[in-house]
Amino acid sequence: MTLFRESFATQQSLPPWEARGVQSWCFLFPLSATAIQRYLDEYFNFAHPEPAPFRFSALAEAQFGCLTISYYPVIASTNKANMLRYGPQTTSWDHLSYNEMYVAAPVLCNRVTPDNLLVDRQIVWIQPVVMCDNSSVVFATREIVGIDTMHATINLRPGRAPGSLHVDTQFSGFKTFSPTTAEGPLPFLHLETGSPLPGGLPEAATREDKAFLEGLFGVIGGVDLVGGVRPTTTRLISLKQFRDAYDLRLATYQAIVASTATHTDVSDLRFFDPKEVDLDFMWSASAEQILSSFLQLGRPGDEKASAPHEGPGWDLVGRQVKIKVAFAYTNNAVYDQIETLHTFGAE
C-alpha cells in the first residue's frame, strides 16, 4: 500500500467521524425532477470515457430538497492515524465544533449490469450545496469524500419568537461579474422560523401539500417520529475529482464516492409551521449557478432588493422558497462506510 504522506496541512480529521448532540433544523421544499435529473446527468451519469456501472435518476415518487442547518458541538475522528503520528496512543485529540448548512435531495441509484439492465434499486442522497464554517471540515470533506463544501460564515441565533431559529449565511464571492468587482462576503441565505408547534406534524392545508407529504413519506418509508423523521441511515454520493496541474481542463482523478451517515438517539423532535418559515436565498453572480440550476430559482427581474437585513452586503434580491415541512431534532451521528463506487478512466 502506498502511504499518504501526512503533513501539517493535512492534519485534518480523518473518517470515520462521530458526532454527539448534533442540533439540526430541516426544511423540506419541492424540487423539479428536471433540475434533479440534469444535475445527476452532469455530475454522475456521464462517460469519462466509459459510463459508471450505475444509473442515477430523479425519484418518480417525490422530488424534494431538504435544507438542513446543523450545529455540531463536538465531532471527532475515530481514526487513530493522526494521533499515532504524533505519539499519543489513547483517545483522539482532534475534536471540532462547527456549523453546517446544506441542501440534499434523495435520488434513485440503480446498478447497471453488463446486459444494460437496471438492478439493485437503492435510494441515495446528493448534496449539491454544502457550506461549513470550519476550514478543517471543508478540506476533509472535499479532499477525502469529494463533497464540494464551501467555506462560509454561518450565524445561528434565536429568532424573534420563543424557541425559533434565525440563520444568516455568507460566503466569499462576486456580487456581479465584472473586471472591476472585488470579491467579498456575500449573503447567501436568510432564514427565520416561528415558534415550535405544540402538537406534531401539522395537517396538510391543501391537496398539493398532502400529495407532497405522501410522496415524502413514501420515499423515506416507515416514518418513526421517535426514531426520527429522516431515515436513520442515509447513503450520500459525491463526485470526487482533482484537476491536472498542467492542463486544468482535465481531471487527474475522478470517482463516484459513497458514504453513510447513521443517526441515532434522536430526541427533542419538534415541528414548525411551514407557513411561518421565511427562507430567502440571496441572488448574486456567484450564487447564480447554484440557485438557477439546481434550485431552479429564476433570475430576478427588475424588482428591488428585498433585503431581510439592514447592513453592508444585504442589498441583494432574495429569492423566496416556500417550505412544506419544517422540523428540528437533536441526535448523535456516525459518518463512515466510505467507499469508491467507480473510478473514471482507471487503467
Binding site: 449539491p128 491536472d244 482535465l250 481531471a251 487527474t252 475522478q254 447554484i290
Partner: peptide, 13 residues
C-alpha cells in the same frame, strides 16, 4: 485523461 466537471461550488479558479 478525463474532463474535469466544473461547478461554482468546486471553488477553483
Amino acid at each position: 485523461m478525463i474532463p474535469y466537471v466544473q461547478s461554482i461550488a468546486c471553488q477553483q479558479v
